[in-house]
Design a protein around this nucleic acid. Structure first.
Lengths: 144, 144
DNA sequence: TCACAACATTTGCAATTGCAACAGTTGCAT
DNA sequence: ATGCAACTGTTGCAATTGCAAATGTTGTGA
């Protein structure tokens, strides 16, 4: 039996493939709510974190400012987020979630939960915990 | 101390963040060779697998046909891949790597190796193996 | 206090990507 | 054989994304 192609078992490769599948799964479920994954991430963050500026969101996701600007354009048009004047800076905006967004939140969290469950369904609780721990280590210690 | 934001430790979230960093790291290194990550993936596959059609490549990566078509346009322009007539079908092309591509291959494999090493530098050999095993399980068993 | 660098956000334009339609080829059931 | 659905690959056009410049604001050091 010939050897597996080297890339198939490489960690980077597996991570990228899984990320792509997660992306597709999340986008499919979010499309029903008219959201992209990016918008969803911003929305959830603002809901959890409370009022924050666009730059803060950008730093959190390592996303360029213009992407935040445009994503929020969409979320604002959907009535989920609003840009307020910042209390201490006239250049920054303070973003916060609307009632409508808060009403939507439970459904959003349910999506995250369901997708994560689908992802780990082949693993026992113990293995899932171990995987979570190892991934967290890599997230913190990787040199890239 | 208040609880961590729920999403920070979710497995899907960590995988997506790592994938993004891997993507950036690979693209930065590949840019020196004038390749995108997509082109690189196709190139490596053709080098390892030998002659194959565009549709076969597409199925392997779950990539749309037009993306393959355009990526190969670039690789062909760079003199790394060529489209031959397929011996048994007039609609399919047989793609294969040029000498130039084969000469480049060692440098390409070195990049993969280096990035994977950077990724797992915070893990011991045993932990890295365990992580690889768990990820492989998820790749095979996930419901998404 | 004034010049200047850094910051927060937006936007015009170019490059990239995705969708859908197209052109040609093949297999298969009638 | 022939009509049709499925397949292989390409392309025009629209949507999305990314870069870089613009606009206005703030902090800081001479």
């Amino acid at each position: 039996m010939r050897a597996r192609l080297s890339r198939e078992n490489s960690m980077g490769w597996m991570i990228q493939r899984l990320a792509r599948r997660l992306d597709d799964a999340m986008n499919a479920r979010l499309a029903e709510h008219g959201l992209t994954l990016q918008q969803f991430a911003i929305l959830m963050t603002v809901i959890e974190h409370g009022r924050m500026t666009q730059a803060e969101i950008g730093r959190l996701f390592a996303m360029p400012a213009y992407a935040i600007s445009r994503a929020i354009d969409g979320l604002e048009a959907d009535g989920l987020l609003v840009r307020d004047a910042h209390p201490s800076s006239r250049r920054a905006h303070q973003i916060h979630a609307t009632e409508k967004a808060l009403d939507m939140a439970p459904a959003m969290f349910a999506i995250v939960k369901a997708v994560n469950a689908d992802l780990t369904q082949g693993l026992g609780d113990k293995e899932a915990g171990e995987l979570r721990r190892l991934l967290a280590t890599v997230v913190e210690t990787a040199a890239i």
